[in-house]
Each structure stands twice: as structure tokens, then as C-alpha cells.
Amino acid sequence: MKKTHSIRLCPGDILLILILFSLSIAGFILQKEIAREGRFYIIEMNGESIYRLPLSSDTLITLETKTGNISIQTKDGRVRVSESSCPQKICIKTGWVKRPGEVIICIPNRTVVRIEGKKRNTVDAITE
């Protein structure tokens, strides 16, 4: 009937905690890498998507439109319109975008830059 269990701190405890911590940190890093590698952005012109390009490489693309030029820059997994011939420069003022579902729109040039992927459902609050 009488068994002996240790009720002192064992090396196994600390080892277990350390392993779990490193496992979850590795998981976080891996997830971030996958999320960065796998994302694409789409350039649409006149309502049709003309390019699908990865966000992971740094590029600068200049496209000719009916009304002028538009330059689209990718850096550090983000994308922006760096130069545009449109009068109000709303597309440039939008700045960098990186999250799935975010868009930059330039109406005079009839150009849309869209990050691929579903927009994530954002919840305000959860009650129990």
C-alpha cells in the first residue's frame, strides 16, 4: 500500500518546463517564418489581376498605365506605392501594407494592390 512519491523538487520538473518553453518558442519562430514565406500580393489593373508576386523578396516595379506611371515597392514583407502620377497621391499616402486583405487603391491609375488571403475575423470581446 505504501508507495514513495517524491515531494521534493526533481530535476525532471525543471527539464520538463525548459523543454516546453523551448518547444513553444520554436513554434512561434516557425510560425512567423511560414507566415512570411507563404504570402503573396496581387496587382490589379482595370479590374483584372495582372501580377501575383511574393512578399518575401525586395522588389521595385514600375508599371505604365493609361494615365501615367505607378511604382510598387516591396521590402521586409511589406508593400507600398512609392511613386505615382496621380494628382492626389492617395495611394502613396496609404503607406505600407502587410496584412492579408489590406489594399492600396489608386483610382486615377485604375490600380489596386492587394495582399492575398482572407481578412482575419476580429472579435471585440468574448464572454464566458
Partner: peptide
């Protein structure tokens, strides 16, 4: 875990297993 490896974990380790 308590039955198979009785002396490897203290209540602290058992509790971490349980929470996990």
C-alpha cells in the same frame, strides 16, 4: 505519469503535465 515514473517528477512536474 505518477504510476509509471513515480520518482521523476515532483507535484510541480505533475501539475505542469496536468495543465498541458
Amino acid at each position: 505519469i505518477l504510476k509509471s515514473v513515480p520518482r521523476v517528477f515532483s507535484p510541480l512536474g505533475i501539475s505542469v503535465w496536468g495543465a498541458l
